[in-house]
Amino acid sequence: MASSVSSKLYSDDVSLVVVLLDVNPFFWAGVNANSGTNQPAAALSFSKFLSHVLPFVSSILLINPLNQVVVIAAGVKSCGYIYDSGGGSDGTSVSDLRAGFLRRLEEFVERDRQLCRDGERAAATTSSLLSGSLSLALCYIQRVFRSGILHPQPRILCLQGSPDGPDQYVAVMNAIFSAQRSVVPIDSCVVGIRHSAFLQQASHITGGIYLKPQQLDALFQYLSVVFAADLQSRSFLQLPKSAGVDFRASCFCHKKPIDRGYVCSVCLSIFCKTHKKCSTCGSDFKQASADSRSKSDSKRKTLEAS
């Protein structure tokens, strides 16, 4: 086994692209749950979106027969593999891709809906499971690294529309750092209305590209211009630079993005309010101040006594 790893074939222009597809019905159906009105959240219908993404996936497979594309759908409660060009059973021809892709996507959405119904009706969560899909992608990449003879250049492309889920903050950051560690750039293309602070940070930290297309009708063009190039070619291409990154962290107690907060001196957990005890590592914050107070108290007492 050890020898097979060392004799892997490293090639610059073979890519493994993991596409994370946001299939959040709350977003695509255009119901803005926060305001409760029927204001469309997506400027692009889901079918149009797919009609841009599918040719993009097939164009990556087209330009190099050794390229591999994996599509992971991120729903509200679950995420799952939708398509794998290296799977063999589906074949790589475009018509096969389309048929298999849509069938699995439908199955996935149905399953996800079932899960939503089974669980408590949490209307507040309209975000997709970004952290879960990132973890799936990273696991998949690790598996490819450890098996097979090819060593493709991996990258992750997040196509996200729904707003960030602050409750996933810790999990997403952990995924980002592990991507950084295994040198997997996370590209992100935001098709929603608002910028995504999570993805801005993800792309910034891992050296990927963050893009929020202005005209969603031309999504394929954006995808093919910015995200189709392999990592080797990127070093001499003029690519969009990030305008700025929202570095705000989310507090661990209420999962809200905050500008200023309190940090546990032991485990660096972030809180928006003072606590007696760190909820992550259990360190007692009160103790130190109480100790000092009791000491000064006793001092005062001794002073009074003398």
Partner: peptide, 20 residues
Amino acid sequence: EAVLRSLPPLAKKYVLQMLF
């Protein structure tokens, strides 16, 4: 398809970019 695959990576990208 075969001809496209034989191109240098940058040229492949240009073709995709110009496709539409």
